[in-house]
Design a protein around this nucleic acid. Structure first.
Lengths: 197, 197, 197, 197
DNA sequence: AATGAATGAGTCTTCATTCAT
DNA sequence: TATGAATGAAGACTCATTCAT
């Protein structure tokens, strides 16, 4: 209990550094993501950074982890709301949630998805995909009439990847020909047609 | 005409450097992609490199451009073989061609797609996508019965992105649950179900 | 009198820090001798260290001082045992005592003699040498027949340095060709031959 | 042959850096021996240093190696002059040569012998000692009447260490009580008395 | 045109020291 | 007095780029 204020300050410092890291990434790009710059933006000396992170990569990982965690949480929340109810409604709601999550910080998404050369990134995205995929596989296996596709695992792999990618690309590229509602409609058609054709 | 030999030599140098760049990328990864190393591998002095490329990024861009050009060429060739014939056969053949193109140099694909922090990458991929998309949009517009989707441009956007991404992820991740043939089947079902549902 | 307990605590702290310093030196070498590590090993905060020592060098000096003081004390004790009796017996006994003192903490000797870049080291060793030298000079001056060398001060300088160095090098290098007893014999022959030739 | 000027420049650069290193060591001490300072003193950029030396330690080693090589060469030259002639004359001449060698750069000797924490130093000194020791051992073994000591290897070990140390300490400490000639006389008496007593 | 030595800004990181609590 | 978080100067080293030859 006596350590509470210190822990609080420790948390605060980590927060400042991670926030600074995120800012540097968004505003100046990955090339500018140097320990000195992150420290400066955090209003902290370079040495302090190393009291809270073992090295440069560690900050980056936290930023990445946080980003995908946020996205995953939003999608999971939406999924939880509609638990048990599979079908068009759920697909639309989930895709919507994913879009909203990705739109929330488009700048960071751009850097994270297109600039970061880090393995950690792939791992985190893979984790999110796996999570949703497993849910879907289970559902498909439990309700044979919900899909005509022979292999639920394969079907989930296809659907999850397709949706994730369409959503990401739509958010990043903002194609003029496709409005947000259109995208949702198309995703619905894509998934519906695929599973039930 | 007097410049021909110099141009020839110039071409040759550019070639050596680009080839060296590709090799470095594939064999040692982007971290090792330093101008000095590329020059060394090309058997050329670091200074010479700057006679043919304004900076490090320029070489990288050529390597990237070449890569996606190759992929695009293969896909285009397959498309050309089946010109006029839309339908399952063409989708399968095109996807097959894309897979083959991506499988041809999986190592480089990995580096290009996951390690390179460069915007140029996105641009090139976008160019490939646009090319195929336009072809498809034209076709869909010309043959209304080939698709039930209201907007051909949107439908093309969806189909092209979905296929491209599924193919890339399959080549990179090599998911155990999905064989190559299965992938082709699923892509077919996905596209067919979407367009004709 | 009111300050006594504080002084006591002060002593204790100094003790802890010096002991920790010695440990760090012996176990991890001079490179690891950082104020932070010494403080950690002492179970004390880095800030506290500066309440008892003005800087890093100061701790090091105390460690060095202590080391040579210990050695000097052991040699002095041996000398005291044989006060008044000069000759082979005393030389052998003194050299033996020196060897024993140096062997007592060979690890620390190694660090102190070969790793420490500090002038202080020289000063302390010089103090030990002077102490023994003066004793010897006095004796030689008092008993002219104990030495045929013309200048007692010079003779003492030679003998003390020679013995000290031979002993140190023997302990540190552990030469295979020379056993401990042989070393004592040789030192005896060296000193005896020199003084009485 | 075409590379001659470049090699010449390379040599020159190495020379400049080593000289600068030596200067830094002598004038500012080992603490100030940073790559940046050495480069600055050499009138060269920090990067250049790494074109000629793999790391900081490498320069230091060259400085050390050169120093002891110089000393060894001088001693060896003196030894060569008196080849075959053992006895007082040779001991005196050799010790004289050693003294001269050590006196030649007393400042560097001080740093090398008392400040450098580097293992390399020990190795180099050990090499010099071994060289002379082996010569002496061979001689003693060949001419049994040149020494009454039972074990030539041991006798050489004792004599070489004693002389080396006495010389070094005399040069470094410049004791008032001992003149240079006195030192030579005493060394002679020491060695003579030891071997022939 | 080609070279490659030289550059020097910039990187990550450490650690002796300070100072608010 | 003790703490330990914060400091920031300095360190070793890299590498894209330049320029005299």
């Amino acid at each position: 209990m006596r350590k509470a204020p210190q822990q609080a300050r420790s948390r605060e410092m980590v927060e400042r550094l991670v926030t600074a890291g995120r800012r540097v990434l968004v505003e100046r790009g990955y090339d500018a993501f140097s320990t000195n710059r992150v420290a400066t933006v955090a209003g902290v000396s370079p040495g302090s950074l190393y009291q809270y992170f073992p090295d440069k990569a560690a900050i980056l990982e936290v930023v990445i982890d946080r980003y995908w965690e946020e996205v995953a949480d939003r999608v999971a929340a939406s999924l939880a709301d509609r638990i048990g109810e599979f079908g068009p409604g759920m697909v639309r709601a989930t895709t919507d949630a994913l879009l909203t999550a990705l739109e929330a910080d488009r700048e960071l998404l751009r850097v994270v998805a297109e600039e970061l050369p880090v393995q950690r990134n792939r791992e985190r995205r893979a984790a999110l995909e796996r999570r949703v995929r497993e849910l879907m596989t289970t559902y498909l296996a439990a309700r044979p009439d919900s899909s005509h596709r022979p292999n639920p695992a394969v079907a989930s792999w296809v659907v999850v990847l397709a949706i994730e990618n369409l959503a990401m690309r739509w958010v990043l590229d903002q194609p003029e020909v496709v409005t947000r509602d259109q995208l949702l409609d198309e995703v619905l058609a894509l998934v519906g047609g695929y599973l039930l054709a």
